[in-house]
Nucleic acid binder design. Structure first.
Length: 306
DNA sequence: CACTTGACCTGTCCGC
DNA sequence: TGCGGACAGGTCAAGT
């Protein structure tokens, strides 16, 4: 699920909520969700203070005072949701006391009042009573504890491409990197995390529509000027989505359990059968690079079709 | 080597 | 309503 804007939205939320919190305990349902939890948990996790929340590509990194870090990948359906202490206080209203739900600061219908649930894989409890839930319906995601200095030596971290929103990613560098995949389709190339970090299926489709490039086009058949345009649209779409708290198609929620609103203004993703906002033709859903792909076949003419 | 496909899981939706 | 099959935002291993 989460692509760069969703992971960045979670990071910003956790940054406000977790810094300074001290971990009191940890529970997980299966080793798969927290593969290397012991024996380091007791020594480097319990009693540790959260000192920073970082993101690299689609990976979240929670740095601890023990010089260990939690590295978290949400994959398709992962969520990281923070729930405030639910201790009774003198401010707890009668209604909240009766409902048994208090202190979360959210409407009772909110996700945070229903946690943990059957998708909860890992629970971190902090001193003071607040909790961080790692939920993951499909169990593709994981959380690992490892020394902070080893985070960037992880195999994925070593090969992942640059951050698209960093200013040093110029047109020239983008073209250089994407042309390493000259033989494949442009959609497969921008989904390739070693070319560029953070673009997934939603923003691939959205940026290709904006740049008027057909996703099945081979990279080698595209002019540099088209790739410049694509880079510009990727940056635009990622920033726009971050401003909107990301995209919620199914499972994604922020650190406070809220859905993202980008898809309300999506131009092609999830809009199959609806009119293209640029030319009025109907948006189609096809398969490219093994993924569901949304296009306007009028705006995004394929060279081989013309 | 470069590229494509299937597997990892669970849940939902769509057509018969 | 029930059931089988396709499909779902990511990444890696295995296959061509």
């Amino acid at each position: 699920m989460p692509e760069l804007p969703e992971v960045e939205t979670v990071r910003r939320g956790l940054d406000k909520l977790l810094i300074g919190k001290v971990i009191a305990s940890e529970q997980h349902d299966s080793p798969k969700s927290f593969p290397n939890s012991s024996p380091n948990v007791n020594k480097f996790l319990i009693g540790a203070t959260v000192i920073a929340v970082r993101r690299r590509a689609k990976v979240l990194i929670i740095d601890l005072s023990t010089k260990y870090s939690l590295m978290i990948h949400l994959k398709m359906t992962g969520q990281l949701v923070f729930v405030k202490s639910q201790k009774l206080t003198k401010n707890t209203s009668l209604k909240e006391r009766k409902s048994g739900r208090w202190g979360a600061g959210h409407p009772s219908s909110s996700l945070v009042n229903k946690l943990p649930d059957k998708t909860t894989r890992v629970t971190l409890c902090f001193f003071g009573g607040s909790k961080l839930y790692f939920n993951d319906q499909r169990k593709f995601g994981w959380m690992k504890l490892l020394p902070t200095e080893l985070i960037l030596k992880d195999p994925f971290m070593l090969k992942v491409g640059p951050e698209p929103l960093e200013p040093e990613i110029t047109n020239k560098i983008f073209v250089q990197r994407i042309r390493r995949r000259n033989g494949t389709t442009v959609k497969a190339a921008i989904l390739d995390q070693t070319v560029l970090a953070g673009v997934g299926n939603i923003y691939a489709d959205e940026s290709l529509w904006a740049a008027k490039i057909h996703p099945s086009e081979r990279v080698r058949d595209l002019k540099d000027s088209q790739l410049y345009s694509l880079r510009k649209e990727i940056v635009y779409v990622l920033n726009l989505s971050i401003e909107n708290g990301g995209s919620t198609s199914r499972n994604y929620v922020s650190a406070t359990g809220e859905k993202g609103s980008y898809l309300k203004q999506a131009r092609v993703f999830g809009r199959q059968g609806k009119a293209c906002s640029r030319c009025g033709a109907l948006i189609e859903k096809i398969k490219v690079a093994g993924r569901g792909t949304h296009i306007c076949s009028v705006c995004q003419l394929h060279y081989l079709d013309s």
